[in-house]
Design a protein around this nucleic acid. Structure first.
Lengths: 301, 301
DNA sequence: TTGGTTCAATAGATTATATCTATGCATCTT
DNA sequence: AAGATGCATAGATATAATCTATTGAACCAA
């Protein structure tokens, strides 16, 4: 079977990105005729037209779209092969890019990282705090090596490992009626002024799901940009809310005039996990970091 | 990032297979120096030694092993890209290689295939009957496009779809005591002379599991090579056994002096499914065939 | 319409590279 | 020690990839 060259596949992907032969050629650091003939040859090898040559630039045919998708996967695997081999020469070294969601990073990482750093001084960690979607995208486009997120999160091409549980705690201003109620179940929040994080935070979705809230019908449609802000708003009497136990333990809300309490059965919460791109050469390191986080989670009060 | 060529990866895989530069070169239809320098260049690109040059032939280093594994995956994806594109030019044509396990093929395929052929006359079907392991291997090395097997069967790189259930029926010689017992549950077979297919047939394992048999302690350690043989042996009074309902319905055991009956609760059986290599360009056709089989299964008495 | 502009295809020259033949240099065998 | 086996090296050659220069088609503005 006659295969196209990786180089030709790169050209094709660039063409898909740029939708122009000359711009794509520029991106690939070759001249336009070079790229043109390369694309033509790929089409000859595959026996299908991949590109629609139009007056203004180029667009992909249906077959072209699928081919590009496969080509990207192949190029990514090839890049993985190279970095895995490089890694083999010098294991556990080089910069490692770790992402984490904002409702986790400030509370979980400080404890974990100090342990990790002392155990593995050769590991250069770079951190990025972002929402789940962006972190997954980072894993996909290789700007991240691993990410700490809330599970379950199924996504093709992404592998995950569960590290532990994180309970949701109830917070309210001192003297709120739900602070004094004998029993407290998640459904009791329905109808109250529940403050949530702004859209895009997975904690927001988890809270809505756990308490069976109807997000649109929420009386006060106020959203906070961070947990710290949220806590301040609750302390200011604007409403009630949930916070992850891990954040509360790390000192979130300390000093504020707040009532923090557990729910009675059923306990609600989320799972913490680590994710990496399937086939990543840094999977071993991702699992190692996961192990360290897991230890931190288990060691809590 | 500098990538190795697909050609170079092919050379490397051939070297891994042949464990000899000259033989590998032969396989690739190039001369030995060509392959030697290509391998050397890959090592330069990756910055690791992949091959241990020994007096008698060559062996892979640890890094080499992993690189070869990744290389094989990449080459397979590249081959898929090509055939997917070819497919796009002429969908649903060209030879399709379908495998099926021996306890299914003779009983399920006749009915399904005639329906399939009339519905899709352009599809050239080639059939192969073999045990599950070999079929999966066939999917892996691209000699098969899909396979009808018993599920569940998890295997990385293989995708499956469940098509229906197939109950196990009890068979015994006329007059056997279990033929006359009021109720019949799978555990009743324990301790009896249960005849099974020879090792490697998944039906054997399913039967052992379903009836909680201890295979080594089976009084008569007789194994049959096919269901037809098995039925003859049971009819000959050598013992009792299980047969898939689908086989019985297709006429297995018709005419033989046999007692066939259902089990009472719990019913036991297996699931029928179709499997294909993840990323196969013929996935759509595999699913189509699966649909046809599913219809056949559902249309039974 | 007409002339300018944009963008891809083509032709032919020029590198770059892939591959070959021929040979050398070890190691193992007999 | 002589032959056989198996990989590395060197230099020649063929193949391919890429470049420059140009053409031709489609669009746009006057």
């Amino acid at each position: 079977m006659h295969l196209p060259t990786l180089r030709q596949l790169q050209f094709l992907c660039a063409l898909a990105d740029e939708k122009s032969f000359s711009r794509a050629a520029d991106v690939c650091n070759v001249t336009q005729p070079t790229l043109s003939s390369a694309i033509k040859e790929v089409e000859a090898i595959l026996g299908v037209q991949l590109v629609e040559r139009e007056a203004r630039g180029a667009s992909l045919t249906r077959a072209g779209e699928e081919t590009v998708e496969r080509a990207r996967a192949i190029l990514s695997s090839a890049a993985d092969l190279v970095s895995a081999a490089h890694q083999a020469g010098a294991p556990l070294t080089g910069p490692f890019h770790l992402g984490a969601i904002p409702t986790l990073a400030p509370y979980l990482l400080p404890r974990t990282l100090s342990a990790l750093r002392s155990g593995h001084p050769e590991l250069k960690l770079y951190l990025r705090e972002d929402q789940t979607d962006r972190l997954i995208e980072g894993l996909r486009n290789r700007t991240l090596d691993a990410a700490l997120i809330a599970l379950p999160w199924a996504s093709s091409g992404i592998e995950t490992e569960t590290l532990g549980d994180d309970e949701f705690l109830f917070i309210a201003p001192k003297g709120h009626k739900l602070s004094r109620s004998k029993k407290l179940s998640p459904e009791d929040l329905n109808g109250e002024d529940v403050l949530l994080l702004e859209d895009g935070h997975c904690l927001r979705d988890h809270a809505i799901a756990a308490c069976a809230l109807s997000p649109s019908a929420s009386p006060s449609n106020i959203s906070a940009t961070s947990l710290a802000t949220l806590v301040q708003m609750v302390a200011g009497g604007l409403g009630i809310s949930l916070v992850p136990k891990i954040a509360a333990e790390a000192g979130l809300g300390a000093g504020a005039d707040l009532n923090v309490r557990q729910f009675d059965q059923p306990l609600i919460g989320r799972q913490i996990g680590i994710a990496w791109r399937a086939g990543s050469p840094r999977e071993a390191e991702a699992r190692m970091i996961g192990k360290s986080v897991k230890k931190t989670l288990a060691a809590r009060a």
